[in-house]
Amino acid sequence: MKKSRANYTQQANEATPITNSVTGQHITMMQYDQLVKEDPYAYHLIPNYDEYGQPSAYTMRQATAEEHETHRFRDRDPAKQPKVGQIIAPFVMTGLDDKLYRSSDLLGKVVVLSFLISLEKSFWSNQQADDFANVLKPYKSNSGLVVLGVLNSEQAKAPEQTNGNALPFVPVPNAYGFHNKYHITAVPTFIVIDKTGKVVSNLQGVGSYEKLKQILETTMR
């Protein structure tokens, strides 16, 4: 995802830990500002996201030649996405239902993290809603399945306002940080987590519903 320096310095302050990726030494925001005083795009701050999807620290690195020329930075690395067989990095998400979804509390349940852009019609179509609902239909009344819609957007509409249909997941609005934390590079992305907290699949694209159906049939047993 592309992000300018200004967005990061607005979030960071003098108390925010910053580590120089080359030296491994900690620097202050004042020292960082001095480094970029002559050239604002020479260096870049990469947020390190905590379990709440919030930047808790930063790593400073030198910009690549392309980033320096375009003034745009790419922080998401597909190689750092959740991998099958690994325990999911801890998360605490707040749903639009005002409930707190903590990964450690969800052990014993199968969890589907559905990474989406928005619930606006241009991003979440009736066909997508129907396809997803059909995948989840066999488990509609199964309390052992938790499905979260992790939205990249700032706001989320209430379910009854979304294309006139009930949503097949609990929306988690304002979740841009979680998209960054898990290095999501395509939407939709479906990350399925088994009852032990391990990732069992990382599916990407609108054509993933059939594969998701097969994964759930196995994982929900």
Rank of each mutant, 00 (worst) to 15 (best):
K80C: 08
K80V: 10
K80D: 08
K80R: 15
K80H: 13
Q81M: 14
Q81S: 09
Q81A: 13
Q81I: 09
Q81N: 05
Q81Y: 11
Q81D: 06
Q81R: 13
Q81V: 06
P82Q: 13
P82H: 08
K83C: 02
K83Y: 06
K83G: 02
K83M: 06
V84K: 12
V84P: 01
V84S: 08
V84G: 04
V84I: 15
G85K: 13
G85Y: 08
Q86E: 11
Q86K: 13
I87C: 01
I87N: 12
I87F: 13
I87E: 13
I87T: 12
I88V: 15
I88H: 12
A89Q: 12
A89L: 05
P90M: 12
P90Q: 14
F91D: 02
F91L: 10
F91G: 02
F91N: 07
F91C: 04
V92Q: 09
V92H: 10
V92N: 12
V92S: 12
V92T: 15
V92L: 10
M93R: 05
M93D: 02
M93F: 02
M93W: 01
M93Y: 03
M93N: 04
T94M: 07
T94Y: 09
T94N: 15
T94F: 05
T94L: 06
T94E: 11
G95S: 05
G95D: 01
G95K: 00
G95T: 00
G95R: 00
G95V: 00
L96S: 05
L96P: 00
D97T: 00
D97L: 09
D97F: 08
D97C: 04
D97P: 07
D97M: 04
D98E: 07
D98L: 03
D98W: 07
D98N: 14
D98A: 04
D98M: 02
D98P: 00
D98T: 01
K99Y: 03
K99N: 07
L100R: 15
L100S: 14
L100P: 03
Y101D: 11
Y101F: 09
Y101W: 10
Y101T: 08
R102Y: 01
R102Q: 15
R102M: 08
R102N: 15
R102D: 15
R102V: 05
S103R: 09
S103K: 12
S103Q: 11
S104E: 14
S104M: 02
S104V: 04
D105V: 09
D105S: 14
D105R: 14
D105Y: 01
L106Y: 00
L106K: 07
L107A: 07
L107F: 00
L107S: 07
G108P: 02
G108D: 10
G108C: 10
K109H: 11
K109L: 04
V110I: 15
V110Q: 12
V110N: 05
